[in-house]
Design a protein around this nucleic acid. Structure first.
Lengths: 206, 206
DNA sequence: ATTTGTTTTAATCATTTGATTAAAACATTT
DNA sequence: AAATGTTTTAATCAAATGATTAAAACAAAT
């Protein structure tokens, strides 16, 4: 029972409507008329405020991707948390986030394939990750023999795979296992405490 | 250097062209004219052979999804392989498969969200998985204390997450880490032997 | 060779869709 | 309240797009 806040400015109404529709259907399947209807505004206002469907999309895309990457980099660059802490934080925050915004992962995956280039230019993921505290801590742990696999990319991919993949497979899991959304979410919440244990075990394995 | 086989029937040419374009751009972003051009045929032939864009898409979708599920269920239902064997087989086969057909995972994820219902009716994933030899073996291993997490769904999600997720994140990994396709694939091939080790360790963890 | 059935083509249709325009409604300033 | 600036609306445009049609090209059967 999501409450529609009624008091937004027209511009904000359009942006939030665009977010809703783009998240659900992707860029190509979204009609500007869908957005106008969702926002309860005249179609021409979309172009009045945002010039074009594409410009509006870019705004939503950049905001969404930034939010996703931002919280990651903040966690990965905290000097005051251990590797174990970081794993817990990422599992907890991302699972909570995706439960609130379940359409975001599939939206990002589907739409990034079109122009990953452009997106990566605007968000310099490269440096942010490679110079991260996380990378240094990982290197240390490898040197001390606490982690067997030396490539930190495998570590990150494993962590994100365990966190994100189940949400991507959600339609199949729910349909294939007759789960309702409550049961599915419960399963994901379980994983918040399981993933750190699993990651710890994996990384020691050889 | 993909060779275009020249000798296909018109119908097959159209279907394979449709596969190529649908995989790359998804249903909504694909124009029937794109498919006609890719196939080197007159636009009207598409409708002559397949009635409509939608019918053609359904054929590709069902074929692709079936292939994906089929090989999974075959492996999961083999009486003659252990749990460990099954993990190895899935990691190996799927990583090889996705390296050959890199657009399939994102295609499936993007398009399944539209009507997961319809797809699951045609492919009864539910029973296939739930009555599988894999489930029985997993239950046994749990009973014997070899596996700590009792829910086999977590097991499957973990395995598939480790296998599939990196391919989904490919544009970000390649762009963000300056890898070319060779280096990326090498990384994935590494994972064929790593994933079974990781899974084994995870499942014993507590 | 003619007839019959099948496949392919060029042209065209009807609808959808992103965008624009001119006017109206509303708000703010003088 | 008149003038000016801003926001919103209804109507419309041009291009794109899925689909159809009628005729042509081709193949097979008689």
């Amino acid at each position: 029972m999501k409450e529609k806040r009624i008091d937004l400015s027209t511009e904000t109404k359009i942006k939030e409507a665009a977010r809703t529709v783009f998240y659900k259907k992707g860029f190509s399947a979204t009609r500007t008329r869908d957005i106008a209807e969702e926002a309860g505004i005249n179609l021409a206002l979309l172009n009045y405020y945002f010039r074009s469907k594409e410009k509006l999309f870019e705004i939503i895309m950049l905001e969404t991707f930034s939010a996703f990457v931002q919280s990651m980099t903040v966690i990965l660059n905290d000097e005051n948390t251990s590797l174990e802490n970081k794993v817990e934080l990422i599992a907890n925050r991302y699972i909570d986030f995706i439960i609130r915004e379940p359409e975001v992962p599939t939206f990002l995956i589907s739409e990034i394939r079109n122009n990953p280039q452009q997106l990566l230019e605007k968000l310099p993921v490269k440096q942010i990750i490679n110079n991260s505290v996380f990378f240094k801590q990982h290197g240390e742990a490898v040197k001390q023999g606490l982690i067997m696999e030396p490539n930190p990319l495998h570590f990150l991919l494993n962590l994100l795979g365990l966190v994100v993949f189940p949400f991507i497979a959600k339609p199949l899991i729910m349909g294939g296992q007759d789960l309702d959304i409550e049961q599915f979410n419960a399963l994901m919440i379980e994983r918040k405490s399981l993933i750190p244990i699993w990651i710890a075990a994996m990384m020691k394995a050889k």
